[in-house]
Design a binder for these strands. Sequence first.
RNA 1: GCGGCUAUAGUUCAGGGGUUAGAACGCGGGUCUGUGGCACCCGAUGUCGAGGGUUCAAAUCCCUCUAGCCGCCCCA
Length: 461
Amino acid sequence: MAQIIKAIRGTRDLLPAETALWNRAERTAREVFARYNFGEIRTPVLEATELFARGVGEETDIVSKEMFTWEDRARAASEKPQSLTLRPENTAGVVRAYIEHKLHDTGQLQKLYYIGPQFRRERPQKGRYRQFFQIGAEVIGPASSGSESPLRDAEVLEMLAALLDELGIPRASAANEYQGWRLLLNSVGSSTDRPRYVAALREALLPVKDQMCPDNQRRADTNPLRVLDSKDEADQAIINALPKIADYLDDDSKQHFAAVLAALDACAVPYTVNPRLVRGLDYYTRTTFEFTVDLGLGTQNALLGGGRYDGLSEMLGGPRAPGIGFAIGEDRLILTLQALAELKAADEGELAPVKIDAYIAPLSPAQNAAALALARTLRAAGLQVEVGDGTFRLKKSFDAADRVARHIVILGEDEVAQQQATVKTFATGDQHKIGFDDLSATLRSSLAIRPTTLTFKEPTY
RNA sequence: GCGGCUAUAGUUCAGGGGUUAGAACGCGGGUCUGUGGCACCCGAUGUCGAGGGUUCAAAUCCCUCUAGCCGCCCCA
């Protein structure tokens, strides 16, 4: 027997039972984004490796060891082979498109959102896959369009709060034992603040480095900012004594951050300022944030992350175009929603599965053609319809119908001859004969099927 | 990339060197020829993750691989 082929490591199939939830989440996100005047952008899954090296940062873990990268062969002798990469995130691609299509020259603020797969070659775990999905958005434009305003930061954060609220994810509070979402916020400073701070950090780490865990010793050399969000218990005292980024912000950055917090207060969006929150991508400046959630996600409790990237466009060879954005881990969002649904089911009992409108059951193969024709009519009217096969016994048809549909439409010899279907409503047990021409209207209006408004008698044979 | 745990029916799981591998749910059929859900009866579940080794004998012990989960790293 031939070897079966399986989905490759870290990728997975989403079957209808799950995609229903994915679609609901995506629909909600699209609706919320539209209310804030965001339009959708779709960028290629494949980009030049150079884009991520320059945008995300050559030294970051993502670029240095987690990308799916290969050399595409040259098409002609005169052409050089090109290094291609499956995108590990989408912000760099959006900014590349912004520059490439000269959206800057419109002078307008661009509000763009995307939904799509991203790829990172990490060890798979719950909530962490090699092909994972992100729902993200970017606000970018020339400074004259207001792209640099703290209002943009606050608006994005407020929009995210609205989205999570609308998806039914509770806010963490003492009342629910902090099972819910929580916004963590920090400012990592401007592109001039940050190098000063990193230098100070390095200096402060030098004498204490040896006392820290091996991971932190390594970080102290490669990426000192990462020492700040270390979970190592023993190192916490040392970390708390390190210089604070807040003391290295220039006046502009300080005022900017204060304005963001003031706007969040005005919108009643709860947040926690965490001076140790840092991000793993080099392009972030000033406001950075993370939403965590304690439902359904194990150690991967970061539901979404984002921040400002005022210098990214220039890094990619474009004009100065400040911006802010975020990316939601859609897989993690779904895990959270599933955990929430389970909690609810434990409280209220299982929810009845959603059923389609009708199941057409021909009584013998002679009625198969008529059944398909009737299905076509009903479907054209917008009804959700399944069709059985006339070789099934009626008993089996009922069984199959009850599993998926609210009504069974029985089609025997008499029904076809009279152009009247026998329709039974599972919930009530009511059964009526309804003319083919009236069927879609009758099924559409649940009122008409209620016994109080219909006085059909049980058919007698 | 590192460490640990796990892999048996469609699903959740039990078993544990010795005839033919089990339960529940689910699935198929019947009792019941155009009226289901309940009940009762019958039936099929399967390369025991893959490959190799030890042994008279391996689903069981050992090794390698693969995949999943947990933690680390990192991040969404």
